[in-house]
């Protein structure tokens, strides 16, 4: 009898999933929803609140893409992935794009066959220790027990760093950020290492954040960015230029507050091209003219997203640093909209 549930579910799944082979853009449009892979919960980057609403820096990228493609920033299905499952989820077409603080590396790009569409956060692996330990440099950590979130590039960086400096350590691999935090606070490890942004986000949730310090060493380059499957360049372009639109918007002074006003036409031709009052950029992408306007309206330009989710006014309190616009001495740089 219960067999029919399976068949029913199969029908429903079949209807819902459809074919997802080549043209992701068409699939997303047909489906009316963007499937976006995110973390299972990292405050500031992607975490569901008490009402099940997803919020965060990575989430905002998903929402901007959904707004650009579908015209509705809430037409996103957030699919939580772990370090282990994220790449299969993307490769198998379960998700259309992955925005899960994923490091752009050679082997992921070339060997695992993904396309990184850009960098939305320049990060590096750092260390957090309790102040009481009196450690001021990572080189003093000989013999320490280190908590690592597993399934990321961090465990390889860590092994390399300690080997290079010829000091020993005890790794404690941990599946989720919450558990790592619990271990670290209970003193089961002396050091917690992950991306510096993640450390700051984690420290922000502590009862007494001031009792913990981030060590000065940043032991790796971690350019984090959204990625899509290899081979579907049209879709890659959509995600890439949505991200670039957010970045360019900040550079050009387009914000969620004034975008509606600027969309009626300005003297700056590049602003006009982005907002669709001049040229046919949207059409070239396979979207309508107002795609970028909607993407910016979804949660603001790059700077606004940064400040709202992880900036200095939030509990996470990250400075722009490397992630300032290139005009301010940072690395955030969008190719021209032309």
């Amino acid at each position: 009898m219960k067999k029919s549930v399976l068949f029913g579910a199969l029908t429903v799944a079949g209807l819902a999933a459809g074919a997802s082979a080549a043209a992701t853009l068409d699939d997303v449009k047909a489906r009316g929803k963007l499937n976006c892979g995110v973390t299972t919960g990292l405050v500031g980057f992607a975490a569901p609140d008490a009402n099940g609403e997803w919020n965060g820096f990575d989430v905002a990228v998903c929402r901007a893409v959904a707004a650009a493609v579908l015209g509705d920033a809430s037409a996103v299905e957030f699919i939580p992935t772990t370090g282990k499952t994220r790449f299969t989820a993307l490769a198998s077409g379960e998700i259309d794009m992955l925005a899960r603080n994923t490091t752009w590396t050679f082997s992921r790009d070339v060997d695992l066959k993904f396309t990184f569409v850009g960098v939305n956060y320049y990060d590096g692996q750092g260390f957090m220790v309790p102040k009481a330990l009196g450690v001021s440099s990572a080189k003093d950590l000989d013999g320490a027990t280190v908590c690592i979130q597993t399934g990321t590039t961090t465990e390889l960086n860590l092994a390399d760093y300690f080997r290079k400096n010829n000091i020993s350590y005890e790794p404690v691999p941990i599946e989720t950020n919450a558990e790592a935090q619990q271990q670290y606070l209970a003193g089961a490890c002396d050091v917690y290492t992950t991306d510096a942004s993640g450390l700051a986000a984690t420290r922000a949730t502590f009862e007494a954040p001031g009792d913990h310090v981030l060590l000065p060493e940043i032991i790796s380059k971690e350019p984090l960015g959204p990625l899509v499957r290899h081979g579907d360049d049209d879709w890659a372009d959509v995600v890439r230029w949505t991200l670039n639109a957010l970045i360019a918007a900040e550079e050009l002074g387009i914000s969620s507050a004034n975008v509606a006003e600027l969309a009626s036409g300005t003297n700056n031709p590049e602003v006009n091209r982005i907002l669709g009052t001049e040229g046919t950029l949207g059409e070239m992408l396979g979207l309508d003219a107002e795609w970028a306007k909607r993407a910016i309206m979804a949660s603001g330009n790059y700077g606004e997203i940064f400040e709202k989710n992880i900036g200095e006014a939030t509990p996470i309190g990250l400075a722009r640093g490397l992630n300032a616009q290139w005009t301010d001495g940072g690395l955030i740089y969008s190719p021209p909209f032309r």
Partner: peptide, 24 residues
């Protein structure tokens, strides 16, 4: 063991090695 970070075969071969090489 994978839930508590004990390095058994599921955690090494089926965990970190799988993650790092992508050879699922």
């Amino acid at each position: 063991a994978i839930a508590v970070g004990y390095a058994d075969v599921t955690a090494t071969l089926g965990g970190i090695t799988l993650n790092q090489t992508g050879r699922a």
